[in-house]
Write a protein that binds this DNA or RNA. Structure first.
Lengths: 214, 214
DNA sequence: TATTATACATACATTTCTGTACGTATGTAG
DNA sequence: CTACATACGTACAGAAATGTATGTATAATA
């Protein structure tokens, strides 16, 4: 079988990407040869070298397929949505992250590869720097959200928005990591929801109604 | 230079371990050859194969050198120390973790390798399972600590010890990960201390003095 | 002091992966 | 219908790493 039509070529490209995700997940990125990916995809190395320049290129293509739509929806939509209060937006954001990771197995598989099945050295170190960068931006958005909550009188007094944002960033980071690890405790939707509620409740005003002004 | 005395042999073993840590950190575990480690240690591959059976054995030896004394001091000493209240023990525990990781560069280097420079596949997957196991035990100890805090009237009412413990596990996990990532925000001792204080304060009784009995 | 086990260095055989060059059959455009 | 670009498969050369076998000088030991 050779030169099929254009859509068929696109399909083998997708097959290669899916096979890469599977084999990377089983054997690690550095430990898989292009031959193994080709076999899993039902093609030869020639097909891979046609669609991608090398393993790193294939790997990056696999990542971008999921990481781009993930974060875009998340912090842009949820942290700026004007139809709910700041702390409600925060809660919705946390819930959406966990349910998305829980339901989208393809995304989870890729994130597991990024977390446990690849080595950030050489060229890949830049990806870590990018990750730090995005975390900083995320932290900024969280801080602005908490600042808005404070202006709305929603934030617990004595809690600095910056510290609250830091702790939420830590919360999200740890929650995702434990979930990807496969910890049973963070896979029970009920407990996760309770944690998120506790996290949000611990930064809103104790029992009082929020004040209306400064 | 050949067969030096026994202590000299032990020294080359340590040299090999140190070189492995350095080169693993620079080039990743899967991407470094024993030849490169040997060069960095000033020996040949023969020396490495004398002291270790293969790269995996060398890697595990490098890990055990730091991971063993780390956790032992941590959850055993700090969560059972009877000279302070449960929430004080928790706070001390969190402070000690962060300062230890901050100061012990050798430990941090190894943890960075474990977090970003190796692939958990094949034999190494068992290490992930072990890590989950230790996290479960850690979670249990946290829960018992919170249960003790509740019995002491220290715990904020309405907060289940299990949920509080889960959130603290998430907190520690995320904090360590962001620190190892190199996020500047979690390297400022002042902010980290403020976060830890906020975390602990958010689970103790609002403003009241703790009750003295059940 | 002679012998043996130790602590390496050296040399070699084997495997494995990569990148590229080349072949080839088929869409597709003119 | 011809010609070219496309979408692969195949074959080859080179590098690199691993494990082992072997050499060897010294420390330990009797």
């Amino acid at each position: 079988m050779v030169r099929r039509t254009k859509e068929e070529a696109e399909q083998t490209r997708r097959q290669i990407l899916a096979a890469a995700r599977q084999v990377f997940h089983e054997r690690g990125v550095g430990n898989t040869s292009l031959e193994q990916i080709a076999q899993a995809a039902g093609v030869t190395r020639g097909a891979i070298y046609w669609h991608f320049v090398n393993k790193e290129d294939l790997f990056k293509a696999m990542c971008q397929k999921v990481t781009i739509p993930f974060l875009d929806r998340m912090d842009y939509t949820l942290l700026v949505d004007p139809s709910s209060t700041p702390l409600e937006r925060l809660r919705n954001f946390l819930l959406q992250i966990t349910t998305t990771v829980q339901q989208d197995e393809c995304l989870r598989c890729t994130m597991e590869i990024l977390n446990f099945k690849c080595e950030y050295v050489g060229e890949m170190e830049k990806d870590l720097a990018d990750y730090i960068e995005r975390n900083e931006e995320f932290l900024d958005k969280l801080e602005r959200t908490y600042a808005a909550a404070r202006r709305a009188g929603q934030l617990r007094p004595g809690l600095a928005p910056r510290i609250a944002a830091l702790e939420t960033l830590v919360f999200v980071t740890g929650l995702l990591r434990l979930r990807l690890l496969g910890m049973p405790a963070v896979q029970r939707a009920h407990d996760v929801r309770a944690m998120i509620d506790a996290h949000v409740r611990s930064r809103q005003c104790p029992q009082r109604e929020p004040a209306t002004t400064t």
